Computed example of a mutant assay.
Amino acid sequence: MSGRDLREWTVLQVRSAMTAAMRTDPRAPDPRALDALAEKNAGSLDPYSLSFLRTARMLTLATSAALTTVLTAHRYGRDRHDRLICLACGTGRCPTVRAVSDVLAAYALQVHPVDRPEAWRRADDYYVRTAGHPVPLTVDSFDDGFIARPGTPPHDTLDNVIIIDRNTGALTLWPAYDTDTLATRYRTYKHGDP
């Protein structure tokens, strides 16, 4: 696997962990529910396990954000001789990306891309927050993600279509172009192609 491919794989692993944490309800688990679970299973959940369960979401988000910062610095680009190198290390195979990748592989993290129901849930949540009420949606799939269109667009913005990234779950606002145009423009936006 090339250094650039290894970095992409590593970024997907980190994004997968972040996406899994972001999918959870930030109000869950309710501390009272955990205490009741501990009482019911007396002795099976020690105080350390309970403490971890209470903080797991924020711990995962913070760790993923920290690793994303590292991987943003250690990205590949061309040097003055047009060789592909890590822009932080100046080497063809970045030792930092390799080390992070080895740790993630050792713990067998899996990439869990966003599926259509999750894309719909994220879009629905966005439109409920912005419109103040549920909005009928259509969700179209394309290679890099999903396009969510409101049945009745909000009046105060021209960019009223959401693209939900298939790998990260990130939402971005777009003009109401047709699916093929949006897919092409999003690919250019995501990959930085000219």
Rank of each mutant, 00 (worst) to 15 (best):
Thr10Pro: 03
Asp144His: 06
Arg122Phe: 00
Val128Asn: 12
Thr72Glu: 10
Thr69Trp: 09
Met22His: 11
Arg98Thr: 10
Ser2Gly: 11
Gly192Trp: 01
Ile85Lys: 02
Ala123Pro: 03
Ala170Trp: 10
His191Phe: 06
Asp156Lys: 13
Met22Lys: 15
Arg149Ala: 04
Arg23Phe: 11
Leu171Asp: 05
Ala28Asn: 14
Gly151Ala: 09
Leu53Cys: 07
Ala36Tyr: 07
Thr152Arg: 15
Tyr76Gly: 02
Leu182Thr: 06
Tyr48Ser: 14
Val111Gln: 08
His81Arg: 14
Pro136Ile: 06
Thr184His: 00
Val70Glu: 04
Ser101Trp: 06
Gly90Cys: 12
Thr10Ser: 06
Pro175Ala: 09
Leu182Ser: 03
Leu67Ser: 02
Asn167Pro: 02
Met58Tyr: 09
Asp79Val: 09
Asn167Gln: 10
Asp180Cys: 06
Asp143Gly: 12
Thr188Val: 00
Leu71Trp: 01
Pro153Tyr: 10
Thr10Phe: 06
Ala183His: 04
Arg129Ala: 09
His155Glu: 15
Pro95Ser: 07
Asp124Cys: 02
Ser49His: 12
Asp35Pro: 04
Thr69Phe: 08
Arg75Asp: 05
Val103Thr: 14
Ser141Lys: 04
Thr157Ala: 13
Pro194Ala: 03
Leu182Lys: 00
Leu71Cys: 10
Arg54Ile: 05
Cys86Gln: 03
Leu34Trp: 14
Gln110Ile: 10
Asn160Gln: 13
Tyr127Lys: 08
Leu59Arg: 14
Cys89Tyr: 03
Arg7Leu: 08
Glu118Gly: 03
Tyr48Gly: 12
Met18Ser: 05
Val97Gln: 03
Pro150Ala: 12
Ala17Tyr: 01
Arg116Phe: 07
Leu37Trp: 02
Ser44Asn: 14
Ala42Gln: 14
Pro134Cys: 01
Leu34Glu: 10
Ala88Phe: 00
Tyr189Arg: 01
Pro95Asp: 12
Val161Glu: 01
Gly43Asp: 09
Thr55Ala: 10
Arg121Ile: 01
Arg83Ala: 09
Ser141Leu: 04
Arg93Tyr: 04
Ala119Gln: 08
Val100Cys: 02
Asp115Val: 09
Leu71Arg: 03
Thr152Val: 12
Tyr127Trp: 13
Val11Ala: 01
Ala123Phe: 04
Arg15Asp: 08
Tyr126Gly: 01
Asp79Ile: 06
Ala119Leu: 08
Val161Ser: 02
Gly3His: 03
Leu87Trp: 08
Arg166Ala: 06
Arg15Ile: 01
Thr172Arg: 06
His112Met: 13
Tyr76Asp: 00
Leu87Thr: 07
Asp102Lys: 14
Arg32His: 15
Asn160Arg: 09
Thr130Val: 09
Glu8Pro: 00
Thr184Ser: 00
His74Gly: 05
Arg83Leu: 08
Leu37Val: 11
